[in-house]
Design a protein around this nucleic acid. Structure first.
Lengths: 257, 257
DNA sequence: ATATTTGTGATTGATTGCAATCATTTATTG
DNA sequence: CAATAAATGATTGCAATCAATCACAAATAT
């Protein structure tokens, strides 16, 4: 085996595994640890990998969704608590439609392994379920909005027009007295098609979204069935939501509403 | 910050990053390295992470596609060479349809960053392009076949029926005198819809596929435009393909075509 | 409130890993 | 083919990291 070929193979192994230890690579390649170190030095110089004490991890191009991944850590504690409550609203055997928001993603993570039919227009959500044999997964096709991994547009809307689901979980970008908002006009159209396809709509939103304006109006306050929010929502917003006839579920230390 | 909360945050960081070094975790959490070690001991006991010298990598549940990932390393050298030749058949500005085969995936990897419109029914392929601003990506929706991340079935076929693309790249499971085969009946129907939607069909297949039977007949030998194969294809198969009027592209040390 | 349990940071000897070096082997070039 | 360059494995002293331990701090229980 040529040195160049071995380095190419090493890079592929590291790319597939994410992390590989130096002794195991030496064993697999049937060369000494010193040789592997030298190979890894070269991969590190090329920027493909990063050496660690006793190992190496992949540092080259990794498909990622910057917009999605930047927003995932925001208010993570709140999102996680909201997701735990929202997941209790889903019943085994449901057909559930999950949108591409980061709070919805936390819900999705908790649904993996449950006996469900999942429909989604989100690549990250789809990736969660694709390997899972307990879940039937249907992906809504369409134009993939750059950096978010969300499918929207006419193909998506047409497919949603011929689907029916029990429950939809939607994230929102903002809530005002006039209703729920997201930042993208095309996305909102696709989300409206989701609501049409659904018996019940569950909105998941952390408290920082309340009183925050966003570009595109999704629907009125009363057009949804359930709202799950963390316990830092104000009393004022709580009463507005309840007055709109929405079932309010609070996530956190206090009693759930 | 409570110890339990810190450990939960650590797990999330490790999950997001794949690998994290102990000094950087200690710095971010504002605790000593000794404390981080103890935390990581607990994560390792729980099976969520694996300690390394000076660091930790994520070892918990990771969405994966076993069927796809098991087959990816097979004949990797051949696939890679085939992909390099196939990528030269794609022109910038093309609309190209990529199926869910592992050889097609290697082609896809080489197309990232090119100015293209990409249509695909494969989650792994979609994940490659979703973050890329040079590429317009359209995902074919439908039922996600378990463990492969490939969308197929009536929704997929209907969407393909309303699309037109310049070139399609297809992997196959087997080639006999009677033509090209894949292992799944539903998948073959979706792939036939892909061929119908395309001006030109490019099949990518490593030489081990020739003379190998597979369940579902895709099309006759002459129904495609280009075949890209590694240089270990036999002279017998070469002449059969050429006699069928297919443009043969050989990948490897010898002269192409 | 006090008593008990759990968690933390620092220290120290033990363990793991590393890079420089050199003799030898392998690959490449003319 | 011989000459040259590149690569390899082993050795050795050095560097980095570790786990056990202890005194103290923080959290929890009564």
């Amino acid at each position: 085996m040529l040195a160049e070929e071995r380095r190419s193979r090493l890079l592929e192994l590291v790319r597939l595994r994410g992390f590989a230890s130096l002794p195991e690579l030496a064993e697999e390649m049937q060369v000494s640890k010193a040789t592997i170190r030298r190979d890894l030095d070269q991969l590190e110089e090329a920027g493909s990998a990063k050496r660690t004490h006793g190992g190496v991890f992949y540092a080259g191009d990794r498909p990622q969704l910057p917009h999605f991944e930047e927003r995932q850590p925001e208010q993570w504690d709140k999102k996680r608590r909201i997701a735990e409550v929202a997941a209790t609203l889903i019943e085994d055997g449901d057909t559930v439609l999950l949108d591409g928001g980061t709070t919805t993603y936390e819900v999705a993570r908790l649904l993996v392994g449950r006996t469900l039919q999942v429909v989604t227009n989100s690549l990250p959500v789809a990736n969660l379920f694709a390997s899972n044999v307990d879940t039937d997964l249907v992906l809504v096709g369409g134009y993939v909005y750059p950096r978010t991994g969300v499918m929207l547009g006419p193909y998506a809307n047409e497919m949603l027009g011929s689907l029916g689901v029990r429950r939809t979980v939607l994230s929102v970008g903002g809530v005002t007295e006039r209703g729920y908002y997201n930042s993208n006009l095309l996305l909102v159209q696709t989300e409206q098609a989701m609501m049409q396809a659904s018996d019940e709509v569950i909105v998941v939103a952390d408290s920082t979204k309340f009183g925050r304006q966003s570009l595109a109006h999704l629907c009125e306050l009363d057009a949804i069935d359930h709202l799950v929010v963390d316990n830092e929502i104000t009393e004022d917003w709580r009463s507005k939501v309840v007055a709109a006839g929405v079932e309010l579920h609070m996530a956190g230390e206090t009693d759930n509403g």
